[in-house]
């Protein structure tokens, strides 16, 4: 516990962490300011026009359904028309609608938090390995796995706590913006359940990013090793390999890309189109679409964590330290 508290003090006092936190706050601030600038409280006239549009839309849908039911024997087909009732916020333009936009904003927040976590975790161990701080610590606590594990645990706990607080403040800020200069929208139980699930998955992704950054910097003995790993992966695999897969006409290339799994993790499931799946069959009988789910994503994340973080601990146990 003493070691963890000492590590937390070191983490909190790092100038890089303070700088990254300020950048994070600035990014969120700019997002909120842009939203405020692009939104206004709907006037009575706008509100009445939107209500009128809703009534028109409802009448149009009802007419379409009746036409449908006259021609179709299957009522479920016609129910598709009424799956989503027209809402008043659909017809308010230049108005921030919390219920419609917060999910995308949360994805934006998670992307920033994941980048923050990756860089902070990588520099936390990378700088210590480069400067000799780790050596100094090991002279006091010559238990390598304990020291490295405490460092990882500390940075994960700190990143999780900061991300959780940031998420609450971020969502709360946009809710306040909607109340003051926009529209909260339809906030039923399902909405909040989905939002909490998105944030929870996002926090999982943030922890994953932190652990990968920490592991890569430990393996490479330097913060730059983690940055190099990400840059190399993005250029060589996400861009280069994708082009190669395209050239050799490899089926389902998206299932080999980490970004696909990140998307699946956040959304719960993503669908991809396999353009080579139905070349030899009759279209209606062939399924050219395939899904990647959050379960697949979890498995891929676990394998990557085992390889990079596990590898970092395994090599650190026996490595000569400068």
């Amino acid at each position: 516990m003493n070691l963890a508290l000492a590590e937390f003090s070191r983490l909190a006092a790092r100038r890089f962490v303070l700088l990254m936190t300020m950048l994070l706050v600035a990014a969120f601030g700019v997002t909120a300011a842009t939203t405020v600038a692009g939104s206004h409280e709907p006037t009575t006239a706008e509100w009445e026009r939107a209500e009128q549009e809703v009534r028109f839309a409802e009448a149009r849908i009802e007419q379409l359904r009746q036409d449908c039911e006259r021609r179709q024997v299957s009522p479920t087909f016609c129910d598709a028309y009424v799956e989503r009732e027209p809402r008043i916020e659909d017809y308010l333009f230049g108005v921030f609608v919390f219920s419609q936009e917060i999910t995308d904003l949360v994805y934006f927040m998670i992307a920033f938090l994941a980048l923050f976590a990756f860089l902070v975790a990588a520099s936390f161990v990378g700088a210590e390995l480069t400067s000799g701080g780790m050596t100094n610590l090991l002279l006091w606590r010559p238990q390598r796995v304990t020291v490295l594990g405490t460092k990882l645990g500390t940075v994960l706990a700190a990143v999780l706590a900061l991300s959780a607080v940031a998420s609450v403040l971020y969502i709360g800020a946009f809710y306040a913006i909607a109340e003051v200069t926009g529209v909260p929208g339809d906030l039923d139980g399902e909405f909040w359940r989905d939002l909490v699930l998105s944030v929870t998955r996002g926090l999982g992704l943030v922890l994953f990013a932190a652990a990968i950054g920490f592991g890569a910097a430990t393996l490479g003995r330097h913060t730059a090793a983690a940055l190099g790993l990400i840059a190399t992966y993005a250029i060589v695999w996400e861009v280069g390999a994708r082009i190669v897969f395209e050239v050799v006409e490899l089926g389902r290339p998206d299932q080999y890309m980490l970004t696909s799994y990140i998307g699946a993790w956040m959304a719960g499931e993503v669908s991809f189109y396999d353009r080579f799946a139905c070349t030899d069959s009759f279209g209606s009988l062939c399924q050219s679409q395939y899904e990647v789910t959050w379960v697949h994503a979890g498995a891929v994340f676990a394998i990557l964590l085992a390889a990079i973080v596990g590898g970092a601990f395994a090599t650190f146990r026996h490595r000569d330290l400068a």
Binding site: R10, A13, R14, R15, S131, G132, G133, T135, N136, L139
Partner: peptide, 13 residues
């Protein structure tokens, strides 16, 4: 108690 070469300390502390 040990010091090995020039130990590095955290500058902001």
């Amino acid at each position: 108690g040990a010091i090995v070469e020039s130990p590095q300390f955290f500058g902001n502390f």
